[in-house]
Write a protein that binds this DNA or RNA. Structure first.
Lengths: 243, 243
DNA sequence: TGTTTTAATTGGTATAGACAACTAGAATAT
DNA sequence: ATATTCTAGTTGTCTATACCAATTAAAACA
């Protein structure tokens, strides 16, 4: 299986070999793969070499590593490699600004009829409701309200929501985000929004609503954001492909 | 700079330190950073630890490694491609409404400095300027101003612009549209816009600017649109792919 | 003067080993 | 029964070393 004399690097041979196992379904999504030490012994190579192979596959989204538990096969990928899912923090940093967050509230609420429909739960089910003020270079940029079904991400804490929720969901929970539908519309700031965003009532704002789903299709969250119209421009790049 | 006693991993400390240098511009794009061996000696850490930091930044697109040459600061990131190139007509039909067009003006104007830059022509070059009121089910939806270099699409007529310009460009001229960059921002209607769109001055509007390029990369057109904030919602769908 | 060789420097691959942080279950004490 | 502690197994971090492969520039040579 592994040819040490080959000019092809060992880590790369192992990487391809494991990738094949995943793509052929020999290793099923969610299944734990042999531990690093096992793999190292199995092929009589160094554990660090194994790590290089595993790390590459983890970076590519094929595997998910969990300290103390093991390494697991990730859920299947979606065919079309279309990126563009960015968090507020990434977005701001890409614009050359330093992102910040102030958590305004964090509680559990019963799902309204509308939210239940969007999140694929039954009315009255528990949802986390997080309201955050997002800052850019210390100045208010957006007011954000986020809803996540409790049963999907149990253990969400005030600490977590003051940082990156996506990171928590992906790294700690091992859930993989697959797609999102986003709508943008223009509106004017209402009183509460104006107060938080430090702008005049009636000033233009950009309303953004995003519904994020996991790779298996289950809705994960609904985020409603109010961006300052004078400070925020939404940009997208489109390329014509097939279909 | 590096605190070996800190619970924060050394590679991570180094990673953040280097990232900061890049983001602050202390290390300029294209510049070569110290070699791995130099960094290792500089901070009295192992070269493998340096490699972990450098690799992470390289994977994130901050650095570019070149065997035998060195490691260099990457140019700034490019936006990710998204699908969704649609014309106003397609967009409206997809929403179940009948599109319509009223041509307000159609003339040839010299390129301003800003437009010339966006369209890759020299200041003063001839541009078509088309102003159209776009209707949905007979009601005003958007006010649109469109600029196209004359030399790219000679023979554009009033008749053509009262229909689909894209269709003319693709079918009659044989030019193929490849990509577009679009920005959206919230604003309020000014007097003339309010009059055409039949809304009150100061009502919310969505400003949309799109620059379209041909497959060979030449800029084709710049469109600036003002959409009624109460009637129009912009929607995009994003999917995450791998690698 | 032009060409080839050599040496030095760079990142790339690989090893062996050590300890830390974390997890889950087993063993133990209360 | 119920906590508590222990233990084995996992990934994470880090070191020190060695050699390979690509590149470049200086040195040697024709």
């Amino acid at each position: 299986m592994i040819d040490k004399q080959s000019p092809i690097p060992i880590y790369y041979q192992l990487e391809q070999y494991m990738k094949e196992k995943i793509e052929k379904g020999e290793w099923q999504p969610g299944e734990m793969i042999p531990s690093e030490r096992e793999l190292a012994e199995m092929y009589d190579i160094s554990r660090m070499t194994v790590r290089q192979a595993v790390n590459n596959l983890a970076n590519d989204g094929y595997l998910i590593r969990r300290r103390g538990k093991g390494t697991f096969v990730a859920a299947k990928k979606i065919e079309q490699p279309l990126k563009g899912l960015t968090s507020f923090s990434e977005d701001m940093r890409a614009r050359g600004m330093e992102p910040g967050t102030i958590v305004l509230s964090f509680e559990t609420v019963p799902a309204s009829q509308k939210l239940a429909e969007k999140l694929g739960v039954t009315e009255g089910d528990d949802l986390y409701e997080v309201r955050r003020l997002r800052l850019a270079d210390g100045l208010p940029m957006a007011l954000e309200t986020l809803y996540i079904p409790v049963h999907l991400v149990p253990g969400l804490t005030h600490d977590v929501v003051s940082g990156s929720v996506y990171e928590f969901i992906e790294k700690e929970k091992g859930l993989i985000i697959g797609s999102a539908v986003q709508t943008l519309e223009a509106s004017v700031a209402r009183k509460v929004e104006a107060e938080h965003l430090k702008m005049k009532e009636g000033a233009p704002v950009l309303l953004l609503e995003r519904r994020t789903c996991l790779v298996d299709g289950r809705p994960l969250e609904v985020v409603k954001s109010v961006y300052r119209g004078d400070r925020y421009k939404f940009m997208i790049e489109m390329k014509r492909g097939g279909s």
